[in-house]
């Protein structure tokens, strides 16, 4: 049972203040390996802010964020820079697609490999054999990843020229290139049609099965959330108002109130 496993990502009592505004208040959240957890809530509830706290874009005012790698190493993420967080093993996608528009699809994925590679300026200038080997390796790995995500035929195209659904897939492929143990998806299905959403569900399930990946996702598409997630956290006004299985959440009076207002359903 998933609940028994040690948490991959553990967020405890995280608070984020912007001046006088408390965007996130004492949030506790746990994601275990091979688990898909959804974070839902009305617009402005603080979901993306929490993502930014976890990934190091913001440094939380209070609280603790801890990552346990597959090999058992425990890392405190609070106060790390975003690139260090990524190195620890957290990858993310963005609510508004943030691909490197004027780079090719392959290069986008190769950038994802950046933090796992070592060659520097001098080895690049001298084209040392180690550097050439590393380059050949990264090209091969990145191409494989593109094949897995059904993007191989776009390999040399600029990212900006991809159709919308493919751009979303590329963002996930790029995140996977960093070899994460926890994947954060910020509204992965936004703007997708029904078929694309269904493909996304299949893809996320495959990722979960094959990599032992822990997935935390923010999403507004309730059908997708109910289909995908093992557990759901609900936020409103910066606080967690409910947590539980999809069935429990769909019946929770606090959630219904947050989404639909005071009236009885």
């Amino acid at each position: 049972m998933a609940d028994m496993a040690a948490p991959a990502l553990e967020v405890s009592q995280v608070t984020m203040d912007f001046g006088g505004l408390r965007a996130v208040e004492r949030v506790d959240l746990v994601v275990r390996p091979r688990e898909t957890v959804a974070l839902i809530g009305p617009n402005g509830a603080g979901k993306t802010t929490l993502f930014n706290c976890i990934t190091g874009i913001y440094s939380p005012t209070q609280g603790r964020i801890q990552l346990t790698a597959a090999d058992g190493r425990v890392m405190a993420l609070k106060g790390l820079k975003p690139n260090q967080v990524t190195e620890c093993g957290i990858a993310r996608t963005f609510q508004n697609i943030r691909l490197f528009q004027n780079m090719t699809v392959l290069e986008n994925v190769m950038i994802g490999r950046h933090c796992r590679l070592r060659s520097g300026i001098f080895s690049a200038i001298l084209r040392t054999s180690a550097m050439r080997r590393e380059e050949a390796q990264v090209v091969k790995e990145s191409y494989r990843l593109l094949q897995r995500f059904g993007l191989a035929r776009h390999v040399n195209e600029f990212a900006k020229n991809l159709p919308y659904g493919a751009q979303r897939r590329l963002e996930i492929a790029r995140a996977m290139a960093t070899e994460p143990s926890v994947l954060l998806l910020d509204e992965p299905a936004a703007g997708m049609n029904a078929q694309e959403t269904q493909e996304l569900v299949t893809m996320i399930n495959q990722l979960k099965a094959s990599e032992g990946l822990a997935i935390l996702l923010i999403e507004h598409d309730m059908r997708l959330v109910m289909q995908l997630s093992d557990r759901i956290y609900v936020m409103d006004y910066g606080k967690l108002i409910a947590r539980g299985t999809p069935q429990e959440i769909s019946r929770d009076p606090a959630v219904i109130k947050a989404y639909l207002g005071e009236e009885e359903q």
């Binding site: 490197f100 950046h114 933090c115 790029r174």
Partner: peptide, 20 residues
């Protein structure tokens, strides 16, 4: 690797950091 990092920095600073 270094040159790609520069171009990524030019394209999107936040995504660039998020990629490590």
């Amino acid at each position: 690797r270094v040159g790609r990092a520069w171009v990524a920095l030019r394209e999107d600073e936040i995504a660039c950091q998020a990629m490590g």
